[in-house]
Simulated assay, not measured.
Amino acid sequence: MPARIAFGAAPARRPFPFIVLRRLRLRLLKRWFDRHLQRLDLPEIDDHLLRGLTPEDVRRECAKSFWQT
């Protein structure tokens, strides 16, 4: 029978950091909502402020869903 070697106490396991997941989820939801609001406001911006974006570029960006970059 092999001898057991004692290495000391096992390191304490830390619980999974659910608070981190909650923060990431809230940050993602905030980013999506901000993007949604920006896409709603984009057609209202004057052409001289868009600096080189064509109306087609604006339409294409406004047609994207909030989770798309």
Rank of each mutant, 00 (worst) to 15 (best):
F16C: 04
R27A: 14
L28S: 10
L40I: 09
K30N: 14
F7A: 09
I45F: 02
R23N: 08
R22H: 04
G8Q: 05
W67L: 02
D41M: 12
Q68K: 13
R35V: 01
L29R: 14
C62T: 15
V58F: 02
K64S: 01
D34N: 04
F18V: 13
L53E: 11
G52F: 05
V58D: 00
F16L: 10
K64R: 13
P2Y: 03
R31M: 07
L53K: 15
L37Q: 15
E61C: 06
V20E: 02
R39I: 02
H48Q: 08
K30P: 01
R35H: 10
L37C: 14
R4M: 12
I5Q: 14
R27I: 03
G52V: 09
P55W: 05
M1Q: 05
A3C: 07
E61I: 00
F66E: 06
D34C: 05
C62E: 06
V20M: 05
R31Y: 08
P15Q: 04
E44Y: 13
R14C: 02
P55S: 01
K30M: 13
W67A: 07
S65M: 09
L40T: 05
L40S: 04
F66R: 12
P17R: 08
R59H: 10
C62I: 04
P43A: 02
L28G: 07
V20F: 02
G8H: 03
S65V: 00
Q68S: 12
P2C: 00
L50K: 14
Q38P: 01
P43Y: 01
A12Q: 10
L29K: 12
L37N: 13
R27C: 06
F33M: 11
A9C: 02
R4C: 08
W67Y: 09
L21M: 13
R39Q: 03
D34F: 07
F33G: 06
V20Q: 03
R51I: 04
I5H: 09
R31L: 13
D57M: 13
C62M: 11
L42M: 14
R51C: 08
L50M: 10
Q38V: 00
R39L: 04
R39M: 09
G8I: 03
P11M: 05
T69M: 08
R25G: 15
G52I: 07
W32T: 00
A63D: 04
L37K: 08
I19M: 03
R39F: 02
P11E: 07
Q68H: 12
R25W: 13
F33T: 09
Q38L: 11
M1V: 00
V20G: 03
R27V: 03
W32F: 10
H36Q: 06
R23V: 10
A12G: 03
R4D: 12
T69V: 08
I19E: 07
I5V: 15
R13N: 03
F7G: 12
P11Y: 04
P17S: 00
L21F: 14
K30G: 14
F66I: 00
R31E: 15
H48A: 14
D46V: 04
